[in-house]
Design a protein around this nucleic acid. Sequence first.
RNA 1: GCUCUUGUAGCUCAGGGGUAGAGCACUUCCUUGGUAAGGAAGAGGUCACGGGUUCAAAUCCCGUCAAGAGCUCCA
Length: 576
Amino acid sequence: MSPLEELRHSAAHVLATALQRLHPETKFDIGPPTASGFYYDIDCPKRLSTEDFAAIETEMARVIAADEPFERRVVGREEARAFFAERGQTFKIGRLDDIPPDEEITFYVNGDFTDLCAGSHVPSTGKIGAFKLLGVSGSYHRGDESQPQLQRIYGTAFPTAAELEAHLAALEEAARRDHRKLGAQLKLFRLDSGIGSGLPLLLPRGATIRAQLETMLSRKLEDYGYDRLYSPHIGAIDLYKTSGHYPYYAESMYQPIRIEEREFLLKPMNCPMHIQAYTAEPRSYRDLPQRYAEYGTVYRMEQSGELSGLVRVRGFTQDDGHVFCTPEQLKDEFKSCLRLVQEVMALFDLRTRCRVSLRDPDNLDKYVGDDSLWTPAEACIRAVVDELGLEHSVGLGEAAFYGPKLDFMALDALGRSWQLGTIQVDFSLPERFALEFTGSDNAKHRPVMIHRAVFGSVERFLGLLIEHYAGDFPLWLAPEQVRIVPITDAQLPAAEALLARCKGLRLRAAIDDSSDKMGAKIRKAELEKIPLTAILGKREVESGSVALRSRAKGDEGALATEKFLERLKSEAALPS
RNA sequence: GCUCUUGUAGCUCAGGGGUAGAGCACUUCCUUGGUAAGGAAGAGGUCACGGGUUCAAAUCCCGUCAAGAGCUCCA
């Protein structure tokens, strides 16, 4: 354990010590350090809330002031069991039983609190420094929904008060980047309860950004040899029975819709539709690979408690694509998908982490297809990852129900990890839909499918981009690129002329013709995070220039109008 | 879905058993100014929704809906 982890783990023990004193009936589960603090899971008859924190923190401060040493004690298994049985600490007995027979069992004791704990700890409670309780929530014992729900108290601790202050300030700063906050402030999108939970409405400014993203990606897809498709939002239920969605994921889908005696599903995924496109004509090996792409909106019945801003919603648009190829082409096609994802992420300077997502070996009934379909799929992903030396983690149980995948993860402002792009190798659905192509031997063969998305969900990607840029979008994405500010009404005609020039170059510009003073107009443009402000006063109009102000650099001084437009045109171009 | 918290004007929030408040934004008028807030007037609310307690509920209680944190889930 690192020194900071030791400190936080020790703080968790101090929290437990305080709770034991204030609420002696408390049953303790576990209290580990985390990436940014610590928590302790407890079962306490009193429902704790943040209002109780002051009392708990006061008691914790007492424990720290007493500078109680942490004493490590090796105990026998039966002795430990008797100790906890006597005190009704049933969770601790369960945890004791988890310890392998050949392993040493240790207690850590400080003052009147004794915990089953492998350590390690700071020498004494006085070494903890600064701490703060941050929140309380429910959590399932052993992370299992069928187990009792405990109360989890979160806190953090640092060696010094200054470090704690800095951490709390960083949390506040992160909250300022929160896409839900910025989304409302900058009028990008709205989650309207009148529409329904998890069904985001992109307002004009957010829609502009999305349109730019899609236009940029569409050009790339052309370069990468994709054909575009548009598929409907609902499809016959049988399609999803064949694909396996209906039996395997019925609970995650909206209820079927009955139309003239036939049942339809709001589509949870686009792949069955793309498969129908593949089967629309007989295929030869000469046609492959066949690459389809679509911005396809899907609907999934997420649990209400899981919804969050744009990053977890019930209706969202995948920049979905499916490659149908021969087994021989698979590896190259996979690499091509990977290159596409990396190329696009680089445009945003977005750092993603890779995860190889495999089946959960303990729950194989969650997946369609047998080993003969999964083994070559996994082999392909591993081969590419190894060959390119791609840094990655492995996620057991994170595979799609039809195949393993390579996922690209990014963190949001609150430090939570979200999946963006994904590349999935699928031998299962071609089997279930009996897909075929005719080989050079004139015999029928089965193609392989790659499911892939670059953004993953356009909405989620937008949400993470808002946080990534803290609302300060680069020029090509900014909903409004130039704010034209005439100093007096006398410059209005010149402002109109400049606006017309901008529109002629397909730049997104607007005039602030309010009766505010220039300072107020500038302030408004700054708060709206408009990248460029073109100020027009008497001097500029007479000399055919604009006074340029950028959000990045502030006042940049006067610039000939022609130069300004030239610069704008090149900086605002879609990246490629 | 579960535990806890929250819901008052477009936004940020104050108030709190006796009938609705501030700042910003908005509208109109005045002001025509040189790099982050000029002035005045006005309009705007079923205090999320539905029940209950009470002479009286925005305020207390219950339920529903929605949002937030975490857990669980995530094709």
